[in-house]
Design a protein around this nucleic acid. Sequence first.
DNA 1: CAGGCAAAAAGTGCATGCACTTGCCTTTGG
DNA 2: CCAAAGGCAAGTGCATGCACTTTTTGCCTG
Lengths: 232, 232
Amino acid sequence: MSGRRLVRSGTTVDQMVRAIADRIVTGYLRPGEKLDEASLAARFDVSRTPVREALGQLSAIGLVERRPNRGAIVAVVTQEHLASMFESMAELEAICARFSAERMTGTERRSLEKEHQASARMVQLGAEEDYEHFNTEFHSRLYRGAHNTHIHDLTVATRSRLAPFRRAQFMLPGRLAKSWQEHDVIVTAIMRGDAAAAGKAARDHVSIVSEASAVFAAVDPMEATLSLSARR
Amino acid sequence: MSGRRLVRSGTTVDQMVRAIADRIVTGYLRPGEKLDEASLAARFDVSRTPVREALGQLSAIGLVERRPNRGAIVAVVTQEHLASMFESMAELEAICARFSAERMTGTERRSLEKEHQASARMVQLGAEEDYEHFNTEFHSRLYRGAHNTHIHDLTVATRSRLAPFRRAQFMLPGRLAKSWQEHDVIVTAIMRGDAAAAGKAARDHVSIVSEASAVFAAVDPMEATLSLSARR
DNA sequence: CAGGCAAAAAGTGCATGCACTTGCCTTTGG
DNA sequence: CCAAAGGCAAGTGCATGCACTTTTTGCCTG
């Protein structure tokens, strides 16, 4: 299908970066998988030049690993590094929550709470798909609410690198309700401007997700799911 | 071929990335300055291809800004973004200090304290140059002591982006002694394993540096220094 | 003399080609 | 039969060239 054109905007390289990053982040391309320049070029119907640039940028942000003269592979995340990312995530979210509690505008607070309450419905219905959407939005609001672009960027970047490993979490039974309750603690703390409580709640929230993920995602995400296999 | 090696290791692109990043981080290339591909290629005696790849990677990590079809410039840091980076830095250092207090090995603690005590001499002598060296090492130890590679990486990256703006700080009279005392509070807290105190001390330390820097570095670092101007 | 327009100049984006490196596989001597 | 050597195919790294976009320049017009 010569997959591109889906993402408008930008140069060919930008599109390639987004396309490949997306495949990595969603787990479609698996850690350690070889990224052959010629194949990718053919796959996206461009020359090797933009592919090379894209791989370079992806390696700069840590999504792929490049061995000089030996090609690129999807970055392999060791168990240890994974743990360090989850721990960092907990701390980053804690910071965002703390700052949010202190800095969110009235509008931000109101819409955070409103969305959060709306998501309760998804829990009742057991609509995982939809809840996940609310969940992502919820966290985004927290990051933006911190009113600190750099923290925002670090947090978003870290979150996306963890995406393949968070995938399995909602397979745990009762996870939806548990997640919602944890969100509720965070929201409540933020609404009353209790920074310390919001930070702690956010940290705990991530820690729990982390532990849940660790159970499933050994080193290779999507051990079970996935399949399409990315070659050709 | 001629103008390269100097920095051993890696491909031409890697060398270019390091070379340009270094010039940006040290302030030799100033925010907003145009990065012409042809000129850089000539300057380093390579073709435009590796230059383009290098610029792409630098833009991926935020050091340069690339406008499609309109060339690349050294990333411009707004006053607001700068503040957000300093604030992030304070939080990141706080995390490192907290973790260090909890996790540093006996060896790490001992050598941290030893180095810190040794640096007292530099303060007495007023050896700014040498103190700065100790200072850098001190912070590095904190980052490593956290035993979390991801936090380590985020912190180092943020620190390097702030480098041009921290430059002016030691121009403040009495800054050396003040800095040492702040370090001392951190070290003391770490030595007795007081994570909360270490975190707070580290955060305060950065905040003070941040305020000091803000005085000098308006938006453009090195307003006074610099000069060589990077063209030709 | 300012404003506008068109053509040239400058500069970026990508394709292509070739040299070099690496890994593998065959060959050959022990 | 194994080990080292040599050669081959695959694949990466960089240079070069051309098309296309943006910016500049110079000329014309009101």
